[in-house]
Amino acid sequence: MTLHMKILAGVVRHIILLTTGSLVLAPFIWMVSLSLKPPAELFSSSFTLLPEHWFAVENYTKALTAAPLPRFMLNGVIVCAAILLLQIIICAPAAYALAKIRFAGREVIFGMVLIGLLIPHQVLALPLLILCYWLGILNTYAALIFPFVVSPFGIFLLRQFFTSIPDDIIHAARLDGLSELSIVWRIMLPMSLPAVIAFSIVSVVSHWNDLFWPLLVVQTQDFMPPSLGIVTFANAEAGNDYGPLMAGATLVVAPLVICFFAAQRWFIDGLTAGSVK
């Protein structure tokens, strides 16, 4: 290939990728753009990226006050943090037992984990809803958290990692007097940090973004996580008040997008691993 053709190919590559990239980003750009504009400009037939009259403060103020958006975000943080914490507390010892301890019934239990991995959550929504009703936890944080406290995917992923840790390290830890549980916390988990991070990303992203389950178990805005909150916001009074609505959507999407750009490699690796489930 001559030098000219190489340069030409490079230019064509960038042109195509920039075009597809901007098409993919168009909804995000438009969302932010509208969130900065006053109502009058939304209906103007000529589209501009930036507003003539900046209306950002008004839109974002309204998004934060008219609907309990800060509340949704806080709910999201509480629910995601609680789910992740409980998942790790429950899954790590289980993964360790499946990876490194021999006991009767281990294969059967691992089989159950695989079955759990296979079943889409929506299939179980109905019995789980009834269970939450029996427990009297409908319309509370507990209903949002409880069905997810054990993650077959988490057990599976951590087990894969734990299996690759040499037995000798565990033997050495036992000789040093560590209990089985402290081997999990002080040896296995720190040594499996990449898996823990990948799993954390999958867990937080999926529960921050989940709509299906919150839709079933939460009726009042006090407990709504961000995705359900913004949808409720869109259906309610703000339905035609597009500026604040877009400001709200921006705020719901922003935390994960910021984390994504800060730790791109981790997000991509984690979520691709998560897609296998």
Binding site: W30, S227, M246, A249, F261
Partner: peptide
């Protein structure tokens, strides 16, 4: 950079972005 921008929709809240699509 190209990988990141094409990957972005996969990790954002589809519920929130659906509202944006409705506007689009």
């Amino acid at each position: 950079f190209y990988r990141a921008i094409h990957f972005l929709p996969f990790m954002t809240s589809l519920a929130a972005m659906a509202i944006v699509w409705e506007m689009l």
